[in-house]
Every structure is written in structure tokens, then in C-alpha cells.
């Protein structure tokens, strides 16, 4: 039994490379199943473009099950689209209606320059992690089993929740200031809540915040958009914790 697919108009940001000036282009797609994921719909478009001898639309993707943090589309004015607590790859076409026009853009931030079409360079996040998102563990053979250190359940849960951040950048994309504080707050919190993270606690907050500023991200004005648009539901608690850690480390410096 066949079901009638949706006919959609896609308005997509096309940009040849990082140096070129991009623009929005319009593409019609037909017979799109409501059961398709958003990325499968883009696959259909790309097959169509290849058949027409045109350049397919470049977009980031990897696991397509919401855990890798690679997909990164700003869909109809929202990071990862109109659904909540999902990444673009988990967004289904049932969220749209036949005849809809869908606007698709890359994340917009000075710190996330466009590489091509919908792909942005998110290596700024890697450099922030390198600045302090780690713990020093002795691997000489005397390593203590992490489970040997008792940790309060609430702290373990909160650290785990912070660690579920997949670093997709939706927080930056949805923030009016292109601030990365939810990401940095989560990456600081996942260590600062645990005893293993205390050795570098002071420098971690200072160094990661410093790197965040160097990358050109904006400053948090507590609009809360990041928390709403985060596919993993990372809480604003993490930004407050980062602010506390940063303020206390600045005073003790």
C-alpha cells in the first residue's frame, strides 16, 4: 500500500567554500515520506541533484542516532529544527506538512566559520577542551580504580548529565550572542563535580573560559535559549557552576 508523500520547498544555504560568499537557494522535493528522518530527506534531495548533474548539498552527519554530535542544521529558525531534545538526525519529516517551505542554514557564529554549504568548522570546541577539559591520571601502573572513590549519588548523576553533552554546538547556534557557555559549563561541570577533577579545578575554569573568549564566542546574557534547544537537555545549572568556579578561581589566583 502506498501513501502519499509530502511535496516541500527547501531554501538552503549554499556556499562553495569558506572564502566564497554564500546565498540561499530554492529546491523543490517531492514524495517525501513522513517516516523519513530529516537527513534522509536531504539524501533524497542530493540524489536528485546528482542525477541533474548538480553539486549535492554538503552537510555534517555521522552516527545518525543522536549521539555523535555531528549533525548541525538550523532548520526553520531553530537549532536542530522544531522538535525538542533531538538532534537533526532524529528529527522526522512528520514534524512538517505537505506544501511547507523549510529554511535550512548552517550554525551562525564567528567562531564556527562555514567550510562549505551547511558544514561549519567546530574545532573551536576542541581547542576549548584541550585548554582544560581533561584530568591527569597516572598511567604508570599505579592507577587507582575510579570506582574505589565513593561519590555521592547526586553528584555522580549531575556529572553524568553534564557529560551527556555531545558538543554539537546547538547552544551557540541558538544563543543570540553566539555564546558557548552551556558547552563550556557542561565540560567543566562533568569534572568539577567529581573528586578526580579537583586537581586541575582552578586552572580548568580559568583556562577554558579564556580559550572560549579567544575563539570569539559571545557572552552569556541568560536568555536560556541554549537549554531549550540543547538536544541533550543540558541545564543552565552548569553555566552557574562554571561562573562560580571561574569567580572563585579568579579570586584565589
Amino acid at each position: 500500500m502506498s501513501e502519499k508523500g509530502m511535496n516541500l520547498t527547501l531554501k538552503i544555504w549554499r556556499q562553495k567554500d569558506s572564502k566564497s560568499k554564500g546565498k540561499m537557494e530554492t529546491y523543490p522535493v517531492t514524495n517525501i515520506s513522513e517516516h523519513m528522518s530529516f537527513l534522509e530527506m536531504l539524501d533524497v534531495l542530493n540524489e536528485q541533484l546528482v542525477e541533474e548533474g548538480k553539486e549535492p548539498v554538503a552537510f555534517d552527519h555521522d552516527c545518525r542516532e543522536g549521539i555523535c554530535g555531528m549533525c548541525s542544521l538550523h532548520i526553520n529558525g531553530e537549532a536542530h529544527g522544531p522538535d525538542r531534545r533531538v538532534t537533526t538526525c532524529q528529527l522526522h519529516m512528520r514534524m512538517f506538512n505537505d506544501g511547507d517551505t523549510i529554511h535550512i542554514e548552517p550554525w551562525r557564529a564567528k567562531a564556527f566559520p562555514v567550510i562549505k554549504d551547511l558544514i561549519v568548522d567546530r574545532s573551536a570546541f576542541d581547542r576549548i577542551q584541550h585548554a582544560g577539559g581533561f584530568i591527569s591520571v597516572n598511567t604508570s601502573g599505579n592507577t587507582i580504580d575510579a570506582n574505589a572513590i565513593p561519590i555521592e549519588k547526586e553528584d555522580a548523576d549531575e556529572a553524568f548529565n553534564a557529560a551527556t553533552c555531545i558538543g554539537c554546538g546547538a547552544c551557540v547556534a541558538s544563543c543570540k550572542n553566539a555564546s558557548a557557555m552551556l558547552f563550556v559549563g557542561a565540560k567543566i561541570s562533568q569534572f568539577s563535580l567529581l573528586p578526580q577533577g579537583q586537581v586541575e579545578a582552578k586552572n580548568r575554569a580559568l583556562n577554558m573560559v579564556k580559550q572560549m573568549d579567544l575563539e570569539g564566542f559571545g557572552n552569556c546574557t541568560n536568555t536560556g535559549a541554549c537549554e531549550v534547544q540543547c538536544p541533550k537537555g543540558i541545564s543552565l545549572d552548569n553555566i552557574a557552576r562554571m561562573n562560580r568556579d571561574f569567580l572563585s578561581a579568579s579570586v584565589k589566583k
Binding site: 531554501k11 544555504w13 540561499m24 538550523h74 526553520n76 529558525g77 531553530e78 522544531p82 529554511h103 542554514e105 551562525r108 557564529a109 564567528k110 567562531a111 541558538s174 543570540k176 550572542n177 553566539a178 555564546s179 570569539g216 564566542f217 559571545g218 557572552n219 546574557t221 536568555t223 536560556g224 535559549a225 531549550v228 534547544q229
Partner: peptide
């Protein structure tokens, strides 16, 4: 400073949906 952090604005943005 915050405006400078996003030199290229979104062509279509629904800021009111989340803040």
C-alpha cells in the same frame, strides 16, 4: 561584543521560540 560574535545573521530565525 556579542553582536560581533555573529557577523552573519540567520536569513530565517525564530528567536522567540526559545527565549
Amino acid at each position: 561584543k556579542n553582536r560581533g560574535a555573529r557577523p552573519q545573521k540567520y536569513a530565517y530565525n525564530k528567536a522567540g521560540a526559545s527565549a
